[in-house]
Design a protein around this nucleic acid. Structure first.
Length: 233
DNA sequence: CTCCCGTTCT
DNA sequence: AGAACAGGAG
C-alpha cells in the first residue's frame, strides 16, 4: 500500500488549506518599490539552516535601511550588512553569499531578473548551483518561488515525511525525492497548474512537519495522514 | 564528518 | 545552562 503525491496534495489542502507563500502578484499590486523576486532570493539564502522567524527580522532590517535591492547589496559595507542580518545566524558566510549573488546578477544580468529567469530551467539551475553558497534546495527555492519555474523543492521536512509515509520513492537522496515527486505530479496535474502545485505542496509539507510530523514527538492522532502512514503511533 | 551562528524551547 | 533547530562547503 503506497500513497501518491497527488493524494497527499489533496489531503493536505483539505486539512491545512492553501499556504500562499510569496504571492508575487500581491506585491506588484501594492506598488512596492523593491522587486519581490529579490526579497525571495535573499530570504532563500538567509533561511539556510535557520528558522524563518529569525530571517524575517533580518528582512525587516534590510527593508528599513532600504538595502533590499541588488544595487544596494552590491555597494553596502560588509560590516553593516553583517549587523543587519545578524538574527539569521551564520552572518559571516551569509554576507559573502548575498554579496556574491548580488554582484553576479549585477555584472552578468545588469540587475535584470527577466533576463536571468527567462531561460531554460535546467540552464538556470546549473548556473545557480555553480555559485558559491547556492546548493540544490536554495537553487530550487529561487527557481520556483522567484522565477515561477516548475521545479520541486526538497528539504529536511520532505525527507522526514518520505521516511515515514509509504511513498514509492527509491532513496532519500535529494535528486531521487525531487524527481519522484515531479514525475508523479507531471502526469496528474495540468501543466498550467504545476508551478502552483509545487509551491503549495512544499509549503504544505513544511506545515505538516511542524504541525504533526515532528522529529521527536510526532502528533499522529491529529495527522491528516494517520490512516495511511506506516509509522503512525 | 565538522564548521559556520542566533534564537527558542526545555 | 543546555538542547534543538536547520543548508552548504570543505
Amino acid at each position: 500500500m503506497t500513497i501518491s503525491p497527488k493524494t497527499l496534495y489533496n489531503l493536505l489542502v483539505d486539512n491545512f488549506g492553501y499556504q500562499y507563500w510569496w504571492p508575487i502578484d500581491e506585491y506588484y499590486h501594492q506598488k512596492q518599490k523593491s522587486d519581490p523576486r529579490f526579497e525571495i532570493i535573499v530570504g532563500a539564502i538567509l533561511t539556510q539552516n535557520t528558522a524563518w522567524v529569525n530571517v524575517e527580522k533580518a528582512l525587516d532590517n534590510l527593508k528599513k535601511h532600504k538595502v533590499l535591492s541588488i544595487n544596494a547589496i552590491v555597494h553596502i559595507n560588509e560590516e553593516k550588512l553583517k549587523i543587519m542580518i545578524q538574527s539569521s545566524g551564520f552572518f559571516n558566510q551569509k554576507t559573502q553569499r548575498l554579496k556574491l549573488f548580488a554582484t553576479y546578477l549585477h555584472k552578468k544580468y545588469q540587475d535584470d531578473f527577466q533576463k536571468f529567469f527567462s531561460r531554460d530551467l535546467t540552464e538556470i539551475r546549473h548556473e545557480l548551483l555553480s555559485l558559491q553558497g547556492i546548493g540544490p534546495e536554495t537553487a530550487d527555492s529561487i527557481l520556483l518561488y522567484a522565477g515561477n519555474h516548475p521545479t520541486f523543492v526538497v528539504d529536511v521536512y520532505t525527507k522526514r515525511i518520505c521516511k515515514r509515509v509509504p511513498f514509492q520513492v527509491l532513496s532519500d537522496s535529494y535528486d531521487d525525492i525531487k524527481y519522484f515527486f515531479e514525475n508523479e505530479l507531471q502526469h496528474t496535474i495540468l501543466k498550467k497548474e504545476l508551478v502552483t502545485v509545487y509551491k503549495e505542496l512544499h509549503a504544505l509539507l513544511v506545515k505538516l512537519a511542524k504541525n504533526n510530523c515532528l522529529k521527536k514527538k510526532p502528533e499522529c492522532l491529529s495527522c491528516p495522514l494517520t490512516k495511511l502512514c506506516e509509522k503512525s503511533l
